[in-house]
């Protein structure tokens, strides 16, 4: 069977200790939550590390709390727990839905919110065996110098496949980050959309000794609706091949006040499209169509993940239109 390459494992029970370990070992170390993404990647040799720092024992990373008009979701919250949590279901139903559609029951009971947000990017040229990459001669994300998706491309376009990221961006979530500087714990927070960079090799704007500790989501007001859809070939196990989240803010008269369309699995970061150009339009079937067309015009899926890229583009338009249509009656 595929065996893990040797590495050391640390099980700190304090955030400071975890960050100190990460700081000490720099690029040789990685934080690990459920391991559902990192362990396969290590087994395939596409990620290498000397030290795995397991975060499960850190109390601060757990828990879901309502606090000051925001829902605070600990990074170690399990994906099943997220999907089944009554507060999440009540206030952020699209997040609960997205979490319930991730991979498989086993992955959902092992994986965490923090892990899902920090999933490594995926590409058909990197998520392969060592033999395969050796045969291909590597790529920008492995040991090679060329991109096989975009011939001549200088930047890695591996895609983010997180189900929770697009929907949390649509909810206006921000991520809380803890780091380690001069032997001290430092904290910051940024909008979730700003967590992601356009470089598929290093798509998280996190320093080496930084981890996501929590996500805070403002409770949407009654006129804000968020929805999520994804397409994958199979109804279980698969990563999404295209995913969309939509935020619609509705006026009293049923027209669009503001909104966001978040499209993922295009590249290393979700594509956020502000819908201000459509403000004032009635939220109806025509808007659904217009949104589908907008997604089609402005997004160009690449052959980075499996499946025909042109088809994914057409599929995206349909998924957006259907998502908006689903939300008309909310």
């Amino acid at each position: 069977m595929l065996r893990l390459p040797p590495f050391d494992v640390h099980l700190p029970d304090e955030l400071g200790a975890a960050l100190a370990l990460l700081a000490k070992h720099g690029r040789q170390a990685r934080p690990m939550q459920g391991g559902t993404d990192l362990v396969p990647n290590l087994k395939l040799g596409q990620t290498k590390l000397e030290h795995a720092v397991l975060l499960a024992g850190i109390d601060e990373l757990h828990g879901i709390e309502l606090d000051d008009g925001e829902l605070r979701l600990g990074a170690a919250t399990g994906l099943n727990a997220l999907a089944q949590d009554p507060q999440v279901q009540a206030h952020l139903p699209a997040l609960a839905f997205a979490a319930s559609r991730i991979a498989s029951p086993q992955i959902r009971s092992m994986g965490t919110l923090g892990g899902n947000l920090c999933l490594d990017t995926r590409c058909r040229y990197i998520n392969q065996s060592e033999l395969w990459r050796q045969a291909l001669g590597g790529c920008l994300k492995s040991h090679g110098r060329e991109c096989h998706v975009v011939p001549g491309g200088q930047g890695c376009v591996a895609a983010l496949s997180s189900d929770t990221a697009p929907v949390l961006i649509a909810y206006g979530a921000c991520v809380h980050i803890a780091g380690w500087q001069d032997s001290a714990l430092v904290r910051r927070h940024i909008a979730l959309a700003d967590l992601y960079d356009s470089d598929g090799v290093r798509h998280l704007r996190l320093a080496d000794a930084e981890i996501v500790t929590a996500v805070r989501v403002p409770l949407p007001s009654a006129n804000v609706h968020v929805g999520y859809r994804k397409w994958a070939v199979r109804k279980s196990i698969d990563f999404p091949l295209i995913s969309v989240a939509l935020r619609l803010e509705r006026s009293d008269t049923g027209s669009l006040l503001a909104g966001l369309l978040v499209v993922s699995v295009l590249g290393p970061r979700p594509r956020v499209i502000d819908l201000k150009a459509l403000a004032g339009r009635t939220i109806d079937a025509d808007l659904a169509k217009a949104l589908g067309q907008m997604a089609f015009d402005r997004c160009r899926p690449l052959p980075n993940v499996p499946y025909d890229a042109d088809y994914r583009r057409e599929r995206l338009a349909v998924e957006v239109r259907r998502l908006c249509t689903e939300m008309l009656n909310l």
Binding site: S104, N127, R234, S236, I237, F239, P306
Partner: peptide
């Protein structure tokens, strides 16, 4: 993962 054989769903 990539060779997609049908799941129970």
């Amino acid at each position: 993962l990539d060779y997609r054989m049908p799941t129970s769903l």
